[in-house]
């Protein structure tokens, strides 16, 4: 009896848990490394665009710079302001960081290479990205400082506004796919190379999605929550050491995540750009990573190129331009598919 129980215990609970933890580590470690080197890439790319060298002192080509930065933040003291709400003050950065990481559970890196292949993968991603605002708004309130609070309010309004158009963009893609599963979305773009990816037929939606992704991740030119000229540095002004580092890492992990979402929805996920010999030799995860790197480069490029938006212009762009445009495209796409009898007959 005890043997039987032990057997079930091992094969039913302990073993699957161990395997899942291992798989999670296989995703988390590359993500964390990419986050670390994204900060370096950002400084390098912006440096080159501004005819500077960027960090080049620590290690060869400055390659050890992210590690030095992380160590510096680790050694510093975490300061909790006297008037702050200590529990919420510390929960906020953890929340931001955790939310940026748990979304990776549903991202497909290759055919079948996904931690949780759930039916409502897109909705899960959308739900998680819409929760990101809490970390910021709680941080702003718990800091008990007016700069942090103003930054948090701006950020909350901004993220809620742009989520609406992101939602409609996702709906447009879903109409074409006929499934909410992320792997199905990539599969429906297969065959025929980049010609079959959704960024071509849905080009306006692709542009709307990229711009909304910039706003959703609080990146330049929509980085009003941390507009340093007006708000010192916005919602994270009272944070120091690891608490600050978690915000920072969360923001960059979110950037990578939004790029991953863009790649899955519009750039054919793990599929090679040309369905022919030398390209199909390269394994899927490498194509996926290259495409993410390309979208991330757009993020950095935009940051080095455009000045910051004014707040009313930002709201106008979200509500008066993107919302009607994306709503129209949902209707237009649906109408087109119905009129030409192209609606997907997915099993989901």
């Amino acid at each position: 009896m005890a043997d039987l129980f032990e057997g079930i215990w091992w094969s039913g609970y302990v073993w699957p848990t161990l395997i899942t933890v291992l798989l999670i580590l296989c995703i988390m470690i590359p993500v964390m490394l990419s986050v670390a080197y994204l900060t370096l890439a950002e400084r390098k790319v912006i440096g080159w665009m501004q005819l500077r060298k960027g960090p080049n002192v620590v290690g060869p080509f400055g390659l050890l710079q992210p590690i030095a930065d992380a160590l510096k933040l680790l050694m510093k003291e975490t300061i909790i302001p006297a008037g702050a709400n200590p529990v919420l003050f510390l929960i906020a950065p953890m929340l931001t960081f955790v939310l940026a990481l748990i979304a990776w559970a549903v991202i497909p890196f290759d055919e079948g290479m996904v931690l949780a292949d759930i039916n409502v993968g897109v909705l899960y991603l959308f739900a998680i990205s819409s929760l990101g605002v809490y970390g910021i708004i709680i941080a702003g309130w718990a800091s008990n400082s007016k700069y942090a609070f103003l930054g948090a309010l701006r950020s909350a309004a901004q993220m809620v506004s742009y989520e609406v158009s992101i939602g409609f963009v996702i709906v447009t893609v879903l109409i074409c796919v006929g499934s909410l599963n992320l792997s199905d979305i990539v599969r429906s773009q297969a065959g025929g190379g980049f010609w079959n990816w959704y960024f071509l037929p849905l080009l306006p939606m692709f542009v709307v999605f990229i711009i909304s992704a910039l706003a959703e991740t609080n990146r330049a030119p929509f980085d009003l929550p941390e507009a340093e000229a007006e708000l010192v540095s916005g919602y994270n002004v009272e944070y120091s050491a690891m608490a600050f580092a978690l915000f920072f890492l969360g923001e960059y992990a979110n950037m990578i995540l939004m790029s991953g979402m863009t790649v899955v929805l519009f750039l054919g996920g793990w599929l090679p750009p040309v369905d022919a010999q030398p390209f199909t030799w390269v394994p899927g995860p490498i194509w996926f990573a290259l495409k993410i790197a390309f979208v991330l480069f757009i993020f950095l490029w935009v940051r080095a190129t455009f000045p910051r938006y004014r707040y009313d212009q930002l709201m106008r762009l979200g509500w008066k331009v993107f919302l009607p445009l994306s709503l129209f495209w949902v209707v237009a796409t649906a109408g087109f598919l119905v009129a030409f009898d192209l609606l997907p007959t997915g099993t989901n």
């Binding site: 929760l131 809620v160 909410l180």
Partner: peptide, 20 residues
């Protein structure tokens, strides 16, 4: 599906406005 919609609509939008 309902679970995700609950999170998107109530937690992601309605509760943000409450908190606001």
């Amino acid at each position: 599906f309902l679970a995700m919609i609950l999170v998107v609509v109530y937690v992601g939008a309605v509760a943000v406005l409450f908190l606001f």
